[in-house]
Amino acid sequence: MNDLQVSLFSLESLFDKREMWKAFFTNLENIFDLKISHIDKNDPMRNKVKNLDEVVDYIGIFGGEEDTLNILFAKSKKYDLFVLLELNKAKSTVGNGFDMVYISFHEEFIKQKENVEKVYLFFKESISVIKPFYAVCDDTINIKVKKKNNGFPVNYEEELPGIFWLTYFNKKYSDFFDLKNKNIPFEVVENTSGTILRLGESPHHIVYDRFEAEKELGTKSFVELDAILNKPFGKYVLLFKDLI
């Protein structure tokens, strides 16, 4: 199944930010007309919730105990839709020193243009709430292909995965890539001073090719599928200390 995936990357620990999560889930419920009913896809019968406060409490407890959390959302009132949220806690301040949020929307849902626009709106709203340094949205097949051939995970102080249908850079990255003087269409995000690059109406209607966009910004800043040697830290992307 080729779902549509939203991925957000934050240098701050996200799991104890109660008000942030309350706003995040409120946006999700309102935009997609969802009602959260479960907080664990592996045990949905036991882990039911009545309101967003219970969801936020669960995340707060999880933040001190586990490394990964999956949250299962109920079907929408209007659409045959569920949303899977995956949270990954940073394990160190070196290499993968950031928290990650992944949200997947299933393939059937995004066949309708109006639903793709809802994902775009949610992407923007999520950025305003979480304030990541980097965020992307695209078909999972386009995201998964951007892997290092040596089998190691991408080191975000060495290179970024790439440019996708939607790509967000915070202000420091926007300045680093000098986006104002590039030809790629972008939009400034409220409350962040960062920018979203949108390459087309949907992942299936791309006007500005993903790989052409990477060339415009500098291919060495992104995962090169045929590259073998590691790149120097901080040469083609920013170090975490320079993003704070």
Rank of each mutant, 00 (worst) to 15 (best):
T192S: 11
V145W: 09
L166S: 14
K171A: 02
V145P: 00
Y168V: 09
V145H: 10
F186V: 11
T192C: 09
S174V: 04
L179F: 02
K172F: 00
F177M: 03
F176G: 01
P161K: 13
D175E: 06
E190A: 12
N150E: 07
V145D: 09
F186I: 12
N181P: 03
F177W: 04
F186E: 05
V189W: 01
E157S: 08
K147A: 15
G151N: 12
N150L: 03
N170W: 00
F177V: 05
D178V: 01
K171N: 02
I163W: 09
W165M: 15
L166F: 13
I163F: 10
K182G: 05
Y156V: 06
N155A: 07
K147R: 15
K180V: 02
E159L: 05
K180T: 03
L166N: 14
D178C: 01
S174G: 01
E158A: 07
N181H: 10
K147T: 15
E157L: 07
L179E: 02
N170R: 03
Y156A: 06
K146F: 05
K172E: 01
I163M: 11
T167E: 09
Y156F: 14
K171W: 00
I184Q: 09
N183L: 09
N149Q: 13
N181A: 09
G151I: 14
I163N: 10
V189C: 07
N191P: 02
K180L: 06
K180C: 05
N183Y: 05
V154H: 08
T167N: 10
F152C: 11
P153N: 12
L160F: 07
K182H: 07
N149V: 14
D178T: 01
F176K: 02
N155F: 04
E187N: 11
P153Q: 13
F152R: 14
K171F: 00
E187D: 13
P161R: 14
N181S: 11
K172V: 00
D175Y: 00
K147F: 10
G162R: 12
F186S: 12
P153V: 15
I163H: 08
N150H: 11
P153G: 14
D178G: 01
V145T: 15
E187G: 08
Y173L: 08
D178L: 03
N150A: 06
T192A: 08
V154F: 09
K146R: 15
E187P: 08
E187I: 13
K146N: 14
Y173N: 03
N150W: 02
K172C: 00
Y168E: 04
E190H: 11
F186W: 12
K171I: 03
K182T: 12
E190K: 14
V188R: 13
N191A: 09
W165Y: 15
W165Q: 15
F152G: 09
F164Q: 15
F169W: 03
E187M: 13
K180Q: 05
N155E: 08
E190V: 07
Y173F: 04
K171S: 03
F152D: 12
K172P: 00
F164E: 15
N191D: 10
Y156T: 05
G162I: 10
T192V: 13
F177G: 08
N191T: 09
N149H: 11
N183F: 05
E187T: 15
Y168D: 02
N181L: 06
V188F: 11
K146M: 15
L166P: 11
N183T: 11
V188P: 00
P153L: 14
P161N: 13
T167S: 13
